[in-house]
Write a protein that binds this DNA or RNA. Structure first.
Length: 706
DNA sequence: AGAACATGTCATGTG
DNA sequence: AGCACATGACATGTT
């Protein structure tokens, strides 16, 4: 029996509705429950579940579920299990095809459970009409209609924004766009609550490619349609309390009071000062910009970071918040590490799936659709929002809290850690290629991973660039803790940021780590040809296809050296003979940090080559031993064959000898002319060739015994 | 999901 | 003692 796309059926998740990702482990499973869906809606929900948790996951994943689906007409008729698989493009290609709709495996326990759940829903007011197909179809039509209206409205808003920008005037002195008039901004959050909001509401642009503040705000609005504010142990002050009107509003319907910014006290407090004219780095093309990238840019703005710290510091000071007071830590031991400072802002930023990211999943229901999906099942009779959907599937409170993996790995990458808290980042440090040595004995780790190499990966690893930007000042202990979630974190940000900006920022934090960098894990990279190593490491005949994000360690060392102003190539540092190397070092005036980095580069480079050679030798040794073993096996087989051959020949000779013996023996006659019995006599030959007929001893002994 | 493999790094041993 | 190299062990990423 197969399910009709529109047919309503009940789904009972008995304990397992989980999203798994490669290497990251399963997400918290959905709590068991019974829900009424159409197949398409069920798939939508599955997809939402999938996209909400894996919106930026680029690898393969699957949604596994066990379910019992019950059609209206044929109540408790079907059950089965299946697996939705998504490819790297986010397409779910198997859908329900693997669902086996058979009642053969349904247990009586399942049947009873279905009955109980169904009756519960009846008690809650669910009627059979709820599952009527025609009603469902009407509902779908209404939903589509709302989607169309919503698209039109969004389009209109974008047009308005564009028209607004066209009204800007270019200030020839500053190169900034200044507003020639101050139009109202209905969709701009907090314009009515921020005193300076109406003064300079237009974020100036260097050129057309830059993100305006309005675009940033729009980005905020679009990206964080729904914010689940983390519950704080103490209520935030009134001026940062979220509006009570905040509910499950659709993101696109947010008003200035309902906007994510308004919902997010940290965010609103943070963003308000940014209404002052500020030059935004003009590196993004709004038409083609990835939202993630835009976010990276937005969050990496020095002004934003400063305000972020200032505002958060103020808020925390006012409320007595400390990282140790966060209740989230209780739920997640790692949370104090993830969210020490900016719980609201970054948590909200990271936990809400950006709408465009969800849109990346081609062929699936757009999030707006999801937001508008309605269900008439007893528990699902409200408009579907990200929140409600999450609650639908994550009814376990622990799963909706920051202790969830999603939140965890989202949080860690965006949080300035200890050093940031205690040592505000100075603008002069932001783009300072030559960091100053403030503490001689700490210079070895002036670059957070100058010894470990962690930051080298940070430099060029696109997915870590954000972490670099935001984790400035991570202590090594923090980094150690972060490591356990690093890969997860990486999955969240697939943006590719390249260029000096990203490369330099991690090193310019002026932060000091205190642990031996050895303890710091770091992503591995591969040796790139032409990086200075003439020796190619021994490898099997397999294609070397590591990801671009896992670039050469040395190239990062080179970037490091460049950032530190080391005046010679990394390959030179590594490959130069000791004397020449020392001479080179003495020729140049190098500070402690440079010397440490150079020594690390040389040590790592040498050791890397040594390891490669070692492995090469080991593999060669293994190959040699394997060859030797093969030869010995061949030799053994040959000897065995030879032995068998000779045994055969020997056996043949023995047979011939036996027949000859009998023939000779048969010729012998005693004195009476009778033949000798072979059992009584035997023929023996002496050394001189003489033959004797000898009575068998055995016979004689027996005779004596008698 | 997990095994197999590749690679970088560190700690330690050795000459 | 200090250095360079070798290698086991480990971590991490990829297939």
């Amino acid at each position: 029996m197969s399910l009709n796309e529109k047919e309503t059926f009940w789904v009972y998740f008995y304990g397992e509705l989980s999203v798994s990702r490669q290497r990251q482990g399963p997400l918290p499973p959905c709590q068991s429950g019974c829900r009424c869906f159409t197949l398409s809606l069920f798939l939508d929900l599955i997809f939402y579940f999938y996209t909400s948790e894996l919106c930026s996951y680029s690898g393969r994943c699957s949604v596994r579920f066990n379910l019992i689906c019950v059609s209206v007409r044929d109540f408790k008729d079907n059950c089965g299990s299946g697996c939705l698989r998504a490819n790297s493009q986010g397409n779910i290609n198997c859908a329900m095809m693997e669902v086996e709709l058979s009642s053969a495996h349904r247990s009586q326990q399942d049947m009873n459970l279905i009955d109980i759940l169904w009756r519960q829903d009846i008690d809650l007011g669910a009627e059979r009409e709820v599952f009527d197909l025609s009603l469902r179809q009407k509902e779908d039509e209404l939903r589509r209609q709302r989607e169309l209206e919503e698209e039109k409205r969004l389009h209109l808003l974008r047009e308005q924004d564009k028209a607004l920008l066209e009204q800007l005037e270019l200030d020839k002195e500053t190169g900034e766009f200044m507003p020639c008039l101050l139009p109202s901004e209905p969709e701009l959050p907090n314009t009515d609550t921020t005193p300076e909001g109406n003064q300079n509401t237009i974020f100036s642009r260097v050129d057309g490619d830059a993100l305006s503040f309005d675009e940033c705000m729009q980005l905020l609005t679009e990206t964080f349609p729904l914010v689940e504010t983390i519950e704080l142990p103490h209520p935030p002050p009134a001026h940062i309390m979220p509006s009570p009107s905040i509910g499950n509003s659709r993101p696109d319907m947010l008003t200035s009071q309902q906007s994510p910014v308004a919902q997010n006290p940290m965010l609103s407090a943070l963003l308000a000062p940014h209404k002052a004219p500020t030059v935004v780095p003009a590196s993004l093309d709004p038409a083609a910009v990835d939202v993630e990238q835009a976010w990276m840019e937005l969050l990496s703005l020095p002004e934003l970071q400063q305000y972020l710290k200032m505002q958060v510091s103020d808020i925390l000071d006012q409320n007595g918040y400390t990282s140790t007071s966060m209740p989230l830590e209780v739920q997640d031991p790692n949370y104090s590490f993830y969210l020490p400072e900016l719980p609201d802002l970054v948590t909200n930023i990271d936990t809400t799936p950006p709408v465009p990211l969800i849109n990346n999943f081609k062929g699936m229901v757009p999030p707006d659709n999801l937001n508008q999906m309605t269900l008439k099942a007893p528990e699902l009779n409200t408009t579907y929002t990200t929140d409600s959907l999450c609650k639908l599937f994550y009814t376990d409170p622990s799963n909706t809290k920051p202790s969830s993996p999603m939140l965890s790995y989202n949080s860690n990458e965006a949080y300035p850690q200890e050093e940031v808290r205690h040592k505000p980042l100075e603008p002069s440090e932001i783009h300072l290629p030559q960091f100053s040595l403030t503490d001689g004995h700490k210079t070895a780790t002036e670059f957070p991973d100058s010894d470990s190499g962690l930051s080298m990966d940070n430099v060029s690893s696109p997915k870590k660039s954000h972490q670099d930007d935001s984790s400035m000042g991570y202590s090594d202990s923090d980094l150690e803790e972060m490591d356990s979630n690093r890969s997860e974190y990486r999955e969240m940000f697939s943006l590719s940021l390249h260029g000096e900006e990203q490369q330099s920022s991690p090193y310019n934090t002026g932060t000091v780590s205190h642990l031996p960098a050895d303890s710091l894990p770091y992503p591995k990279s591969e040796l790139v040809e032409g990086n200075g190593h003439n020796q190619r490491p021994f490898t099997k005949d397999k294609p070397r296809r590591r990801s671009a994000g896992c670039q050469s360690r040395l190239s990062r060392d080179e970037q490091r050296a460049k950032a530190l102003g080391i005046p010679f190539a990394v390959e030179l540092i590594i490959n130069l003979p000791v004397d020449d190397f020392n001479e080179l070092m003495s020729k140049h005036q190098l500070n402690e940090g440079q010397l440490v980095l150079i020594r690390d580069i040389r040590r790592r480079g040498k050791n890397k080559v040594a390891a490669q050679n070692c492995r090469k030798r080991k593999m060669e040794s293994i190959s040699g031993l394997e060859g030797e073993l093969e030869a010995l096996c061949k030799k053994k087989a040959h000897l065995l064959r030879e032995s068998a051959q000779r045994n055969g020949s020997l056996k043949e000779l023995k047979e011939q000898l036996g027949s000859l013996y009998l023939e000779v023996f048969s010729w012998l006659r005693d004195e009476e002319g009778k033949p000798y019995s072979p059992s009584d006599y035997s023929l023996q030959q002496t050394s001189d060739g003489s033959m004797f007929l000898v009575p068998r001893v055995k016979k004689t002994l027996k005779g004596e015994d008698k």
